[in-house]
Design a protein around this nucleic acid. Structure first.
Lengths: 211, 211
DNA sequence: ATCTGTTTGCATCAATTGATGGAGAGATTA
DNA sequence: TAATCTCTCCATCAATTGATGCAAACAGAT
């Protein structure tokens, strides 16, 4: 028996998949409690009962969106990991920053969704959590901050966290931050990359051995 | 004619002030759309009509909370600014990180509120915005990244942004991040400080002249 | 005590929202 | 054709939520 999510992934033209796509956009814009099932149904062009037929209750749909997004992000990180594998650390960092910025900018719902899931969690409801730890661990190893999956220090994890959260915030908060910084679209993207490089490379390259 | 907010500040025992205090806690926990006026009224121990009598509609109360919090944060930044004034840059950074971490940890509603206001903004409603730009500007100058208030480069602003967002995220996301990092309460606080120092000091101290 | 203005809570509204039952439309199979 | 299965929408529910009218309680001044 395939889960609804598996079915949706199998056929991108199915109603399940269409709903999932719209739901991702809308949840990422408004968060869980800011989104109504009617909003989603409307953008798909269907009745809410059709939505409930395919996905069950709101929290189930939300969880499916979250899992789907998470899976996609993991795939992308694997892709980047392949590119940088074997290169010296400074290049690794620069390429990783460059690639992940480009990807996340094009798919900014991902960061929105994650950060919102993170900050606004409706209690009582049975909401899934984003598996941050996997991602952090993967990055830490590929950045050379740790050798073993199970032997990553608190410090290393915290440092990777800064990288990730900074990037996520810059992207999810683009709309607010770009007027503050005074740079729009492509210009903004470049400032972000530049800033991340500026801050991260000296810290990680120099003091790598101290961890 | 004093605004409701001014009245509340004047007398901390007034009903207005009590409501404001509870509202801050609850809004910072659940965001705007995740909070109901009934939740707030309940924790104060009053009827919602009393709440409406004092603060008008929900958005007005929310805005008051936001303004109040913002003012408080600005005062705190001024206090820190006084402490670090005149000291050499590395000490300035370290003390500023230390002081602001301590303060924000003790008052974590502040960061929650700001980040939520930031990411989950109900459209249509007339919701105030946090004045990030003032704070960014102030920090940039006190960090020596800019001399003139009006002559701050995009790069400088972006760099300050990283510092601020990292700190805010670490605090607002404490609940989620501390199990990931593997450090609780005081230990977590120390890791955060250490990490911010690690990442920021080399970058800012070395390359200051390049801006 | 009486008057006046402020504060508070009960009762209630209309709108929104999550969720469901059931009746059809359409395709597929027997 | 008849039976079955899948899918879609209309109508509707109960609960929640933002918001208000009104009367009672209260406090201070005259």
């Amino acid at each position: 028996m395939a889960t609804p999510l598996e079915k949706a992934r199998r056929d991108p033209n199915s109603m399940k998949a269409k709903i999932l796509t719209s739901a991702r956009k809308i949840f990422s814009k408004n968060g869980f409690s800011g989104t109504t099932t009617r909003m989603i149904a409307k953008t798909v062009g269907i009745d809410i009962s059709t939505l409930y037929y395919h996905w069950g209750e709101k929290a189930d749909l939300y969880n499916a969106v979250l899992m789907d997004t998470q899976e996609e992000l993991k795939q992308e990180l694997k892709r980047i990991e392949k590119i940088i594998h074997g290169k010296p650390l400074p290049s690794r960092l620069e390429i990783a920053i460059n690639e992940s910025c480009d990807y996340l900018f094009k798919n900014s719902e991902i960061t929105n969704l994650i950060l919102l899931n993170y900050f606004t969690k409706p209690k009582g409801k049975d909401i899934a959590e984003f598996h941050f730890i996997d991602i952090i661990t993967g990055i830490a190893i590929s950045m050379g901050l740790a050798m073993d999956k199970d032997k990553i220090t608190k410090q290393a994890k915290a440092r990777v966290m800064v990288v990730m959260l900074s990037l996520f915030n810059f992207i999810a908060g683009k709309k607010y931050l770009s007027p503050i910084i005074g740079a729009e679209s492509q210009d903004y993207l470049n400032v972000v990359k530049e800033t991340l490089n500026f801050i991260l490379i000296p810290a990680f390259v120099q003091d790598k051995k101290t961890i």
